[in-house]
Amino acid sequence: MIASYRGFITLCRKEVQRFLSVSVQTVFAPLVSTLLYLLIFGQVMPEGASGFDTLSYHQFLLPGLIMMAMLQNAFSNSSSSLIQSKMYRNLDLLLLSPLSPLAIFLAFVVGAVVRGLMVGIAIAVVASFWVPMPVTHLAWVIVFALLTTMVLGALGFLAGLWADKYDKLAAFQNFVILPLTFLSGVFYSVAILPPVWQTATWLNPFFYMVDGFRYGVLGVSDVSPWLSLAVTFGFMLVLSMVTVSLLARGWKTRR
């Protein structure tokens, strides 16, 4: 039991050290690109795009951008770590160890959560110098930040498990993650969309993560934070069960 715990902690540490060893690429680059988004979209988008009269567009946009950066980086961390391990063939070292499929999965998710949170906190700190960001419900902020990075860490693990070359992973990132992120209400309120697009947005799980997080920061949201919590938690549970089960069966790993 203690040996298993030590093994899990070792893999968690390794996953965190891996991305910290290339922190310019994994932490500072997303910080800069998100601040550019804030600068450019904050200038060109009309004030009414937030859908809330009481908020400036900058204020509306910032929590969405933080969430976008957190979810994209959480996804990148677990997916790129796994695909690199496959390409370099060092995944075998992990598969030869006594670590359980659940422990391997959770450790990769921990790495993703740490990177996602680091990026999110860095953006919040730097952006707060010119966009006021009063946190209305801190507990909701923490819950959605954690849950979202966990979900995207799990999704990244699943994508990394499925992909057997970088090209496949890039396709997943560009044709699944990016559209779901951009259509999740990061840049606008769902309330201003035509009915068809509103309905499409309800089917996007990323929308509930962004909306719940925005509620925690600003105290306003398109749907109830409880609904967002239920959808996000349910998504995480199903995703985790599927991924761990595939890993335990040796899908794409144990030939």
């Binding site: 030590r6 070792t10 893999l11 540490r13 070292l93 160890s97 006594p98 670590l99």
Partner: peptide, 8 residues
């Protein structure tokens, strides 16, 4: 790290 996977 590899030893750590085995609990060492």
């Amino acid at each position: 790290i590899q030893a750590g996977y085995f609990g060492f």
